[in-house]
């Protein structure tokens, strides 16, 4: 190993006392790019957010491609959109939950020795969550299209946008849990929970075949409103209660994340 070098000739002669504060609290594109690279380096994250939802479609969606919904649309499309919602929410939760790892490693503390503002940090987490969620939705749709799913372009677009942007609710859930759970392996805990939520909320099995009790329970599950809204352009149905479901859960997780975040920064 080389030795520590003395100051290079390019270094200013004196340490400067004139200093600037960075704009936007330190928020910048390079930061987000490196965050996304970190997410994609995690094999577990790639498997659970990109590969698994696609595989699920091949197993459960493809055989139902020629079944039809009451309005004549393909049941395969219905499953594809549901799984896109599932992929996006898993991706967003994983990205948000990374704060647990960063707290455990002391990286959060290290960041407090930089000009980065807490709000900018949260913004970076939200943006990297949205990026991974977008990649997940895109992967799902490309696989679906490649295996013969055909819908009007408006349906692709609106369903994709709802699945993608709705994942913010789960980015908040990930942050909430990341600040709450003192564990590096927060996703080992959250992964199964997300799968159960997806099941109960009608992302794996349509609500209509769930029976009365589970059908009623489903309406209160965080994945329900999002799934119904994302499939809405396909099914042609719409109900304001779905919007209410999404809004309430977004509010619950955001408030939870904010409180847990405040508690955490106070403690450091």
């Amino acid at each position: 190993m080389s030795t520590l070098a003395t100051p290079s000739p390019t270094q200013p002669e004196r340490v400067s006392l004139e200093r600037r504060v960075p704009s936007a609290g330190g928020l910048n594109v390079t930061f987000i790019k490196i965050e996304i690279r970190r997410l994609l380096r995690n094999r577990r994250t790639v498997i659970f957010t990109l590969l698994m939802p696609a595989l699920f479609f091949l197993i459960f969606g493809l055989p139902n491609k020629d079944q039809h919904l009451p309005n004549g649309q393909s049941y395969g499309s219905y499953i594809l959109i549901s799984l896109a919602v599932y992929g996006a929410m898993t991706a967003a939760t994983s990205a948000g939950g990374m704060v647990a790892v960063e707290r455990a490693l002391g990286w959060s503390r290290q960041l407090r020795l930089t000009p980065l503002q807490p709000a900018a940090y949260i913004a970076v987490k939200a943006l990297s969550a949205l990026s991974l969620a977008l990649l997940s939705v895109a992967t799902e749709f490309v696989i679906g299209f490649a295996f013969g799913v055909r819908m009007d372009w408006q349906i692709w677009l609106i369903a994709g946008l709802v699945a993608w942007l709705g994942s913010l609710t789960f980015a908040a859930l990930g942050l909430f849990m990341g600040y709450l759970v003192p564990s590096q392996n927060v996703m080992q805990l959250l992964g199964p929970i997300l799968a159960v939520l997806a099941m109960l909320g009608g992302l794996f099995v349509p609500i209509s075949v769930m029976g009365t009790t589970f059908g009623e329970i489903a309406k209160f599950v965080p994945t329900y409103g999002l799934g119904q809204l994302a499939r809405s352009p396909l099914t042609g149905d719409f109900d304001w209660s779905w919007v209410v479901n999404v809004a309430i859960w977004l509010a619950v997780f955001t408030v939870g994340a904010t409180l847990a975040f405040r508690r955490d920064t106070k403690r450091v």
Binding site: V21, P22, G26, I34, L111, P115
Partner: peptide, 11 residues
Amino acid sequence: ELTATLFADTR
């Protein structure tokens, strides 16, 4: 590189 982006000016 990541840390450098968080400051206004760095070496």
